[in-house]
Design a binder for these strands. Structure first.
Lengths: 220, 220
DNA sequence: GTCTATAAAGGGATAGAC
DNA sequence: GTCTATCCCTTTATAGAC
């Protein structure tokens, strides 16, 4: 049992507990017990419960964001000088997060739940790296969807990230809603359904332009 | 100060605390203090923390679902024998929940957060009444979108309810993402953006049919 | 119905031995 | 690095006076 072995086991156990019971609901006693470690090990390795939480999230955030950038690079290579495909941009935003839940509890469940429970610690880890992704996604979407203004772009990006979060958090609901026809564990299946849904939403006419268009059609 | 006055103040204070800090994060001490009531009043009026939570949620759920049914009735009256407009169905699903947050914290924030923290108490109050709404919405969507199979209908309804939940929970994120251009308090503005987005997603081609269609187009 | 007081349990953190 | 033991605080819940 190496030095960092306990550390890893603590991270794994904490991730599970935090995602299942929320930050406040999870107790260090349960976490250390599940990790077959001592209660004091948390203090030794991480300092505090909050620092443990931050470490748990941080471990997942970087790989996810690297994968997002990789997918965007790949899509850009495919597109050459043309705007990226909306589907490719959407997939780059959502697939890495959803897939990160395949080998365990999804980060988004933890982050989402802790988001306003104790907002400060989470945002520290998540929002910094996310800013870069968001900027790049926004640039790509702006080119791909020139009919949208900045405000609408913001709304639609927000909606998109929102679906992902709730899909990751409430997998059991999907199973219930569909009478078992949809398998929440089948991430690729979910992604295959989600990408066209969101891409179509993204491509929806601008609300302002739509108003003007319908005013025009009434006149004619 | 009538008898039920304390009860109402407790419900109001509890709603705020639960939605801001989550079920576990909220303490009866803070709640009773905010309600200018005594700690023991919770036991007297509700029995336990969990029963208080259930009462808080239950108070909101019924009006929301009645409003949903009202909007569906209204849309059906407009449509006559034709299928309902997708926009109208989507709006009936989402607007009542979002608007219920106008005069206070949105139910969805509480429910969403408590959803897997302590799943049992929440589902008891929410899922029962929700089943009727879902069944009716599904029937309406099935007629309006005959190109979708049941599985896809499930996915898209799930996505739709998901966006709503996260939009309600993370209003601050919308403000941050948009550099202040989108006002999360402006519920009608958000609904006006959300309905066309989701309706377009709903109308997106069936994934299966799309595959066959693209196979056909490659042949031609 | 409302209060005080307290019970009983569980939480995070840490000192200090090994 | 790991452990035991313990401190100190907060939590929910309730008994019993008013």
């Amino acid at each position: 049992m190496t030095a960092s072995d306990t550390r890893e086991r603590l991270l794994d156990a904490a991730e599970r507990q935090f995602s299942e019971r929320g930050y406040d609901g999870a107790s260090l006693r349960e976490i250390t017990q599940a990790a077959e470690a001592n209660l004091a090990a948390v203090s030794y390795h991480f300092g505090s419960k909050e620092d443990l939480f931050v470490a748990v999230v941080a471990r997942r955030v970087q790989p996810i964001n690297l994968e997002r950038l990789r997918l965007l690079d790949q899509a850009e290579a495919r597109a050459g000088e043309r705007p990226l495909e909306v589907e490719a941009i959407v997939e780059a935003m959502i697939a890495p997060v959803l897939r990160s839940g395949a080998d365990g509890p999804c980060v988004l469940r933890m982050v989402g739940r802790a988001n306003s429970e104790s907002a400060a610690p989470t945002r520290r880890v998540v929002e910094g790296p996310m800013r870069e992704i968001r900027a790049r996604v926004r640039r790509a979407l702006r080119r791909a969807l020139p009919h949208l203004n900045e405000r609408e772009l913001s709304y639609r990006m927000h909606f998109t990230m929102g679906v992902v979060k709730s899909v990751a958090s409430d997998q059991h609901l999907l199973h219930a809603i569909s009478d078992g026809q949809c398998d929440p564990q089948d991430l690729d299946g979910t992604i295959a359904q989600l990408v066209p849904f969101l891409a179509a939403g993204m491509r929806a006419p601008s609300v302002e332009r739509k108003r003007r268009a319908s005013a025009r059609s009434r006149r004619s």
